[in-house]
C-alpha cells in the first residue's frame, strides 16, 4: 500500500488498500498495523502543522488513531480513506485548540467586515518571490489557530470548502473569507511588520 500524498488526496485513493481497511474493520491487528504504518507519517505532519508544539502533534497523532480505530465502522468506503482520516484529524485538532481556548472567537465576528480589496499584484509577487519555504513555515507558526488551521486544511489536506466549513464550524460562504484573511495574516507575518504587507490598491 502506498502512502497517501497529502495535498492531493483525491488522486491516491486507488493506492489505498481497501482490503487492509476491511480487515482492520474486523479487528485484525495486522491490518490495523499496516494502516497505521502507512498513514501515521502524514497524520503526524498534519498535526504538526495544525498544532503549536511538536509534543502536541505527537499526542494528537496517537489520539487520532485511537479515535479512528473506534470509529472505523463509520467510515464510508465509497470515499477515499485518507480524506476521512484527515477529517477525523482536523476535528480532533480543532477540538483540542478549542478546549484550550486558543480559538479566537472575534475572528468569526470579523468575517463579514473583510474589505474588498485589490492589492498590488507586483508587491505580492515580490513578497512571494523572496520567501523560502522555511520562512513560510515559521510565519505559519505565528498565525492564530483558526488561520493556520484553515490554511493547513486547504493547502496541506486539500479539503473542499464544504469539509473545511464543517471542520471549523463556519458557514460555507465564509470559508473563502477565512482563507483570504489567513493569507493576509500570513503575508503580515512574512513581512514581519504590523501593517498589511500588501496593502489594498483602492
Amino acid at each position: 500500500m502506498e502512502a497517501p500524498k497529502p495535498g492531493r488526496m483525491s488522486s491516491p485513493g486507488a493506492a489505498e488498500s481497501t482490503e487492509a481497511i476491511t480487515r482492520a474493520k474486523t479487528g485484525d491487528p495486522e491490518a490495523w498495523g499496516e494502516l497505521y504504518r502507512v498513514f501515521a507519517p502524514a497524520i503526524f505532519r498534519f498535526c504538526r502543522r495544525a498544532l503549536p508544539t511538536r509534543e502536541d502533534a505527537e499526542d494528537a497523532t496517537m489520539e487520532v488513531f485511537m479515535k479512528v480505530r473506534d470509529k472505523l465502522n463509520q467510515y464510508d468506503s465509497s470515499r477515499p480513506f485518507s480524506s476521512w482520516l484527515y477529517k477525523v484529524a482536523a476535528n480532533h485538532c480543532w477540538d483540542l485548540l478549542r478546549r484550550r481556548k486558543i480559538r479566537q472567537d472575534k475572528e468569526t465576528e470579523d468575517l463579514d467586515t473583510l474589505p474588498l480589496e485589490h492589492p498590488d499584484a507586483n508587491q505580492l509577487e515580490q513578497l512571494i518571490e523572496k520567501r523560502t519555504s522555511e520562512e513560510v513555515r515559521k510565519a505559519l507558526d505565528k498565525l492564530p489557530a483558526r488561520a493556520r488551521m484553515a490554511l493547513v486544511l486547504r493547502y496541506y489536506s486539500d479539503m473542499s470548502y464544504d469539509e473545511i466549513a464543517d471542520s471549523l464550524g463556519v458557514r460555507r460562504a465564509f470559508v473563502g473569507v477565512v482563507l483570504l484573511r489567513a493569507r493576509h495574516e500570513l503575508r503580515q507575518a512574512l513581512e514581519g511588520s504590523g501593517a498589511l504587507a500588501v496593502g489594498g490598491a483602492g
Binding site: 497523532t61 505580492l124 496541506y156 500570513l186
Partner: peptide
C-alpha cells in the same frame, strides 16, 4: 497578475507544508 500571484502563493503554501520531511518520532513509530 494578481491571479498568478495568488496561484503562486497557493503553491508556495502547499510546498512549504509538504516540503519538510519530518520523520516520524520514535515514540510514534
Amino acid at each position: 497578475t494578481l491571479f498568478r500571484a495568488l496561484d503562486r502563493e497557493s503553491r508556495l503554501l502547499t510546498r512549504a507544508m509538504l516540503e519538510e520531511e519530518e520523520s516520524l518520532p520514535a515514540r510514534l513509530a
